[in-house]
Amino acid sequence: MNVNYLSSLLAVVVLGLVAYVGAGIAGLQGVFGIFIPYLAVVIFIAGFVNRVMGWAKSPVPFRIPTTCGQQQSLDWIKQNKIENPSNLFGVIARMFLEIVLFRSLFKNTRTEIVGDRLSYKWVVWLWLFAIMFHYSFLAVVVRHLRFFLDPVPFLVKFLEQIDGILQVGLPGVYISGITLLVGAILLLLRRILIPKVNYISRAADYFPLLLIIGIALTGLTMRYFTKVDVVKIKELTMGLATFHSGVPEGGLGGLFFVHLFLVCILVVYIPFSKLMHMGGVFLSPTRNLANNSRMKRHINPWNPKVKFHTYDEYEDDFREKMIEAGLPVEKE
């Protein structure tokens, strides 16, 4: 038992109850169905811009890439062009592999003492859970576009076909929904069960995972178990997307509002938390800079203008006196 994840769990449960009671029982469906989603989008955009522009303002005067390969050197020494890029092309390749395939997670190692020796072992699990979780999440988000677009474009339908390829049950099981939940739970268990990871995990690490698990659970419950009137939900969401919002006649179930409210909380939470890595991954100077310090002089842009008096100028000023005194000069 740990206060960090218990408090996060409590927060998610309370937030869910707020929506359930507020929209489902007290009938504040306009607030939870229209006002809060719009507010969440506005806060998200403002917070996101603010955070990214804050990073844009941060000085990065020098090249600080973290490298783990041979840097560009003499012709007969083979450079590792991706681990130690020296030009834009290498940086793009490196960033692409990082963003799309999570390459640095793939190099995850476990440090252990085996017998009387320190050993480092390659461990694939973090990468596996992470890639499963992130791509499932992407698929789920893209699939949800069916609620916000009319007519639904081909790409979304195509993804639904692929995702529902198992044709199990009705409504058909989507693979991504299940892998999303499983991935999030595995990432959570990793934090709870591995003592070293547990030691460095705080409430801010547990909260987003539990929040996403809450969202996935309510979503899956609505789709496969308690069922909702999808046409009515699309009426509400299309209202949001076209700025003609209204709560559909007869209202919607409490569970739907729990789902929607938790999504709003997640959207609002992103710019103020570690979830900002969705923007930050593009902007990490240890990844997106070429290691070309030995080829190109990088001058700190906010260095004050210093008036230099070079040796050449010094010699020009004093040449005759130097010759007189018998000091060596560069130019006669």
């Binding site: 916000f148 009319d150 003609h244």
Partner: peptide, 8 residues
Amino acid sequence: NHGAVSSA
């Protein structure tokens, strides 16, 4: 959707 009204 460019603000078009879409009705269920």
